[in-house]
Design a binder for these strands. Sequence first.
RNA 1: GUGGGUGUAGCUCAGUUGGUUAGAGCACCAGAUUGUGGUUCUGGGGGCCGGGGGUUCGAAUCCCCUCACUCACCCCA
Length: 432
Amino acid sequence: MDKGNDKYVKAPLGMKDIFPDERLLWTEMENAAREEFEIAGYHEIRTPVFEDTRLFVRSIGETTDIVEKEMYTFGDTAGSTITLRPENTAPVMRAYLEYELFKTKKFRKFYYIGPMFRKERPQAGRLRQFHQMGIEAIGSYDPLLDVETIKVATRVYDRLGLDGYVVKVNTIGCEKCRPGYRAILKEELLQYKDELCELCKARIERNVFRVLDCKNKKCKEIRQNVSNTEDHTCSDCRDHFKTVKGAFDDINLEYTIDPHLVRGLDYYTKTVYEITHPAMGARDTICAGGRYDNLISDIGGPPTGAVGFAAGMEASMIAVLKTRENNKNSQPDTSSLSPDVYIVSISAETRNHCFKLLNELRLSGLSVDMDYESRTPKAQMKVANKINSRFTIIMGPDEIEKGVIKLKNMQTGDETFSGDTDKIIQIVKGNK
RNA sequence: GUGGGUGUAGCUCAGUUGGUUAGAGCACCAGAUUGUGGUUCUGGGGGCCGGGGGUUCGAAUCCCCUCACUCACCCCA
């Protein structure tokens, strides 16, 4: 193929195609998620992939990188712009608000699975079009829900057989105590300003909390000397966090408190959490979430508590594949990609008869295929073997003349004849 | 936006101090007598060595530029 040809077009940067064999894991992951979400009372909501740009600016925060430089934003009708969703919490809240659910069914649990878009440089497990699955519990301030959402996430991972993930939790305070802590932290860090890395110097003004999870060695040392989040949260937040910790213990959910855990999106309050996995590259988060009690009021609704998470599907998949690679025992089940029967036509003259039989057999629900590449009978057998067809039907002049079907079991090599199509169907179905 | 790494057949990679028609494995296709697969054997198709420029008698191999991919940083799932 001439890749210098100007007709040759590739997928845009950071966009991936998912082919059938790979898709198996996607379906497996989606099914695991759907089942666990439904078990916990969360139901699917599907929102548009586009939203009014203002929704994300108001919810995610004007000074975040996502809004400043990573959104795919396009002109819509005169004077307005739309943006491909960079995350799905705000859209779900928007829908909740738009349909005024707080008036009728205030407490709602939703889940979603779908593509998100961020215009950043792609790297391991992070793409420009990526996929998230997440849940949102809206209309309650109950700390037990914080733990419920985490438990739901870990159950999905358990079901997928993921080993070695770590649950990290922290509290970042609420609108009452966070501003105070922000000021204190800023003041304390300014004393070390010359020792901090260039990035953190800027972060003091831009987003102080980010200094707390800087990877720079010196910055790590310095933050040992400044007061941490928990010392400055208000009694309300402290009580909330205490209940959260107690609930973890009640259901034997392992977790670690990470006082340096912060979040990049502005809307988080109180509890924040992350699930990380060592199979990932430098950025090891596969799932992240927390409480966002101010989000709905930020976009014009009444004060409404909410909590939820988003799991990165590509990232989670890397972790799952790594686990399976290590265990080596579990071979992926690819049987859904193979037909039950492959019909081999002996000559060109018998193809129409084969095509007729193929359609008849498909009516019974069997997956049946035949050759469309004018291959020789031998080559057709090779294909049948290659694609792991459980049975073949060999159809030639002899069979047509006698009015029989010759069925071959590809595992045992046994061949049987029958003039009764229903009997053939029963044999194939009985052998599954 | 910034930094590092890599770019040779569909895939994974070899290619020696620059030297004649660029290789392997896998995959693909075709044969190994009469209408039939899986193992084996034989043969075959397929690469202007990412692109452009330069050095040289001669470059996949050296130099420059460019593009792409990749890892990492910022930020984030």
